[in-house]
C-alpha cells in the first residue's frame, strides 16, 4: 500500500477501527472534511463517467469508430478495425470500474494510458496538419480546418489524465466497492 504523504491526517492508512459505516477509509472523515477522499471520489466519477459515455457512443457505431481511427492515418484498415473495436470495450470497462470504485488503481492506470494515447494521437494529427476532429467522443473524422479544436481537446485530455494519475497514486476513495471489499482488512 503506497500512500505518499501518509501521516498527514486524512491520507493515513485504513485500520479496522477507522472504517466508518459508509465504507470510507479516511480517519478524518468524521467531523472534518476529508478533502483528498472527496477529490478521489470526484476524479473517479468524472473520469469514469467520461470513459463510459465516450465508449458507449463508439460501441453503438463501430463502423464510425473504425472510421475515426482511420482518420488519424496512422494504421492500416485491419489495425484500425481492431483498435476501433477494442477501444470502446476498454473504455467502458475501465469507466464502469472507476464509477463503481472496483479495482480502482488498475482502472485508473488503464484510463490514464488511454488519455496519454489520445493526447499523443491529437498532437501527431496537429503536427501533420491533418484537419481531423479527435475521435475521443464517438466519431471523429476530417472536418473543416477552422473547426478543429486541437488545443481544447488536448487540454481536456490532460485534465482527465491528471484525474487518472491522482487515482493511481491514491486509489482509496469513499463510496467504492474497493472500500466495501477491503472492509475490516
Amino acid at each position: 500500500m503506497s500512500t505518499p504523504g501518509a501521516g498527514e491526517g486524512p491520507a493515513g492508512g485504513a485500520g479496522p477501527s477507522t472504517v466508518t459505516a459508509s465504507g470510507t477509509a479516511y480517519p478524518g472523515a468524521r467531523g472534518r472534511p476529508a478533502w483528498p477522499g472527496v477529490v478521489g471520489l470526484v476524479a473517479r466519477l468524472v473520469l469514469g463517467g467520461v470513459l463510459v459515455v465516450a465508449g458507449t457512443i463508439k460501441i453503438v457505431d463501430i463502423t464510425g469508430s473504425v472510421q475515426s481511427v482511420l482518420a488519424y492515418q496512422l494504421f492500416s484498415y485491419d489495425v484500425a478495425r481492431f483498435v476501433g473495436t477494442m477501444l470502446p470495450v476498454v473504455e467502458i470497462a475501465a469507466g464502469l470500474l472507476l464509477v463503481t470504485g472496483l479495482l480502482t488503481r488498475a482502472a485508473a492506470v488503464a484510463g490514464s494510458l488511454l488519455m496519454a494515447v489520445f493526447i499523443v494521437g491529437i498532437v501527431s494529427a496537429w503536427a501533420r496538419g491533418l484537419t481531423i476532429d479527435c475521435g475521443c467522443f464517438g466519431t471523429g473524422g476530417p472536418v473543416d480546418p477552422e473547426d478543429t479544436r486541437y488545443l481544447s481537446e488536448i487540454l481536456r485530455d490532460v485534465g482527465l489524465l491528471a484525474l487518472g494519475a491522482w487515482l493511481v497514486v491514491r486509489p482509496r476513495t469513499p463510496l467504492s466497492l474497493d472500500a466495501l471489499l477491503t472492509k475490516g482488512r
Binding site: I59, I62, T63, V66, M86, P88, V89, L96, L102
Partner: peptide
C-alpha cells in the same frame, strides 16, 4: 460480473461491420 461485462462488451463491439 467482470467476466460477463467484458464478454458483453466484446460481443457488442464485434457484431456487424
Amino acid at each position: 460480473l467482470l467476466v460477463v461485462l467484458i464478454g458483453v462488451l466484446v460481443w457488442a463491439a464485434t457484431r456487424g461491420g
